[in-house]
Amino acid sequence: MTDPTTTPAAGEPFPEFSLPDAHGQMHTLSSLRGRYVVLYAYPKDDTPGCTKEACDFRDNALLRSHGAAILGLSADDAASHADFAEKFSLPFPLLVDDSASYLKTIGAYGEKNSYGKVTQGIKRQTFLIDPDGRLVKAWLAVKVDGHADAVAEAIDKDRARRD
């Protein structure tokens, strides 16, 4: 990976992070070795698309059966994350990147075009990381409907490839 603000290619090590959740507990990618990790970047707590995406990850039985670690990531603060997680009974951590520095590192923050309006912000993206810390697949323009199922299917395919 030559540019430090670009999504790594499939098979490359995913950049390490050390970020707090809504309760101040620190999370690192290296502490999740041995499990699939679903790291999803989303624009804003408690907005329609972000709520649907979080609830779809929460409710996906196949992801649970795989034992995947699901982590939400946005620039919202800890209080906003805590309210959002409580309101929708989200059982996974929402990581705080208030400076958006890690979001920039993985290419999930930058120029967005919404209905012809160009802005800077968080891009709705998902990264599937394998038990060895390498990127399996990146979804760089997520459409929420059916997305959690697609992530679960990608874990199935990667597991079959490893067997």
Rank of each mutant, 00 (worst) to 15 (best):
S18G: 06
S18K: 02
L19S: 06
P20L: 10
D21L: 13
A22W: 02
G24F: 10
Q25F: 12
M26F: 13
T28E: 07
T28I: 04
L29A: 13
S31K: 05
L32P: 02
L32N: 01
R35D: 00
V38E: 01
Y40T: 00
D45R: 11
T47G: 00
A54K: 06
A54I: 00
C55A: 02
D59L: 04
N60F: 00
N60I: 00
L62N: 12
H66N: 02
I70E: 10
I70Q: 13
A75K: 15
D76R: 11
D76I: 13
S80F: 01
S80G: 14
H81A: 12
A82G: 04
A82W: 07
K87I: 00
K87S: 05
F88M: 09
S89E: 06
L90F: 12
L90S: 07
L95Q: 08
L95A: 07
D98I: 13
D98S: 15
L103Y: 06
K104R: 07
I122H: 05
I122C: 11
T126I: 10
T126W: 12
L128I: 05
G133L: 02
G133A: 02
V136R: 12
K137W: 03
A138T: 06
V142K: 05
V144L: 04
V144G: 13
A148G: 02
A148C: 04
E153T: 13
K157S: 09
